[in-house]
Write a protein that binds this DNA or RNA. Structure first.
Length: 483
RNA sequence: GCCCCGAUAGUGUAGUGGCCUAUCAUGAAGCCCUGUCGAGGCUUCGACCCGGAUUCAAAUUCCGGUCGGGGCGCCA
């Protein structure tokens, strides 16, 4: 490609980041669209997807889209060779096209008398143009068409669905959530780790695992990094986090469950449940605050789309939650649900429709600490003097909810070996099966706590998505294993 | 595992036994116009999931199948 004559100025990416010019473009579309006045008469090379190709005469308007925005290229038959002109003019939408030409201000549209003239817009007047890759027609689904496309069709064609601005924005925001989350944990001294996803046995019990063949023996896909995070803590890493997949072989089919999901986990030594709840609320606060400060453009893109729906959806807003988040202890939650007229007793699970009742009093994020020990896994800690109203043993396990939906569960972990073994027995598990884990506690173990947060569910809250499949690029559910 | 629901052009839909040679939008093909502005105008193309049954007549009713959707249960 043509070498840019500019000194090394960097392209501007979509979020103010610097993108180095590449062999296929000297500028991004967003850069020219936003900073066109500085670039007038500059020769540029741009590349993108053809979003609309209009004009069948001696002129052609080519609307291009790349990862940073949209820009029109103006092609005039006289200005470039006839073959390229004809090819572009008859190209299908979504073909990828490269254009070289000079930046110019667009001719202002005709406005009715009395109406204000719109802000100046820019375009590239093509001197040459090439189809990099021709798109076939028709598309399996439209990118800019106004027809609604159903989720299964979108997921079957996710690579095309992702070209739609609001879908693209959701996944850019996902990256931001992880970035800001990491950023925050690092400032609190956490280090990133990875645990194995191939495991020899059910690490916790309680959920169905996907069996797999590991050479000659049977193995499973990991349901959670839980036990390995703890082993890292026992080994003295003090503060760790992991962002990685978890697999559950449950045949559920709801808007919030998937069989493969990304869990954002932490584990922290010399800490209890309250300590790690504080880490979590500070982290979520940091994520929301950072999105509000830096990424309103992505929220705006989603809102543009929501406004165009029929009927229009309410705009989403990034409301930075105030600290601390409410703590609604399990026993109090049961009372709230009972007061709402529901037949529930201490020891019952709090289901989604129950959570609605709590959410009515505590909109937004709230913690549900101090669940009954009987409802929590064997590795959750308890103080024997902490009892519920009927005398039931309380645990130091907690959930984080947003509205009706569980975002996270966590707790202080049992670090006392004898009690750990007792818990396993009480829950009908054989301690011998967990020796690799239990033995870790025999040689000194710090009290510790941690949690696991569903990234896609958090992204649902941030983007207003009504289905977790919206916030996972290639979701794996009961029926879907492709693409 | 349980309970509902659905399947019509590439996409999204209308359709409740004959008016269906199947609606509309979007799309695609072509033409006209045009420095266009989610451009506009005209023409054309393109579909009833599969098998069986009822009926003079089935996209429409019934049975079976396949595929899919929603909810619940289950689920650190």
């Amino acid at each position: 490609m043509k070498k840019d004559k500019r000194p090394p100025i960097f392209m501007t990416g979509r979020d103010g980041s610097t993108w180095m010019p590449t062999s296929y473009r000297t500028h991004t579309l967003g850069e020219i669209a936003r900073g066109g006045s500085e670039l007038i008469d500059t020769e540029v090379t741009i590349s993108g997807y053809a979003e609309a190709i209009r004009g069948r005469g001696a002129i052609c308007f080519l609307m291009l889209r790349d990862g940073t925005g949209h820009l029109q290229a103006f092609l005039k038959k006289d200005n470039l060779d006839e073959e390229s002109f004809t090819n572009i003019q008859s190209a299908n939408r979504e073909s990828t096209i490269q254009v070289t030409g000079k930046v110019a201000q667009k001719r202002p549209p005709k406005v009715k008398e009395g109406e204000p003239t719109p802000a100046a817009e820019y375009e590239v007047v093509a001197s040459s143009a090439t189809i990099l890759s021709a798109a076939e027609a028709p598309m399996p689904m439209g990118v800019t068409d106004k027809v609604n496309v159903e989720l299964p069709t979108r997921l079957d064609n996710r690579h095309i669905d992702l070209r739609r601005s609001h879908v693209n924005a959701i996944f850019q925001l996902r990256g931001k959530i992880l970035q800001y989350g990491r950023e925050h944990l690092v400032t609190e001294g956490f280090g990133e780790m990875n645990s194995p996803k191939i495991i020899a046995s059910a690490s916790e019990g309680g959920t169905n695992l996907f069996p797999m063949k590991y050479f000659e023996t049977e193995a499973y896909l990991s349901q959670s990094p839980q036990l390995y995070k703890q082993l890292a803590i026992l080994g003295g890493l003090e503060r760790v986090f992991e962002i990685g997949p978890a697999f559950r072989a449950e045949e559920h089919d709801t808007y919030r469950h998937l069989n493969e999901f990304i869990s954002f986990d932490i584990e922290m030594a010399f800490a209890n449940d309250e300590d790690v709840m504080c880490v979590q609320e500070r982290m979520i606060h940091h994520i929301w605050k950072s999105v509000a400060e830096n990424d309103q453009n992505l929220i705006d893109i989603i809102n543009d789309w929501r406004e165009q729906q029929e009927p229009p959806l309410n705009p989403i807003t990034v409301d930075v939650p105030s600290l601390p988040f409410p703590r609604v202890e399990y026993s109090d939650a049961i009372e709230i649900i009972q007061a709402a007229g529901e037949n529930i007793t201490w020891g019952d699970d709090i289901e989604a429709h129950h959570a609605d009742m709590i959410a009515a009093e505590y909109p937004g994020f709230y913690f549900l600490p101090r669940w009954p020990m009987s409802m929590k896994p064997f590795y959750i800690y308890h103080n024997s003097d902490e009892k519920g109203p009927g005398g039931g043993q309380l645990s130091r396990g907690f959930d984080l909810n947003y509205g009706r939906d569980e975002m996270c569960s966590g707790g202080q972990r049992e670090h006392r070996t004898e009690i750990l073994i007792e818990n396993l027995k009480n829950m009908g598990l054989n301690p011998d099966d967990f020796s690799f884990y239990v033995d870790g506690f025999r040689f000194g173990a710090p009290p510790h706590a941690g949690w696991g947060l569903g990234v896609a569910r958090l992204l649902m809250v941030l983007t207003g998505a009504g289905n977790v499949r919206e916030t996972v690029l290639f979701p794996r559910d009961r029926r879907r294993c492709t693409p």
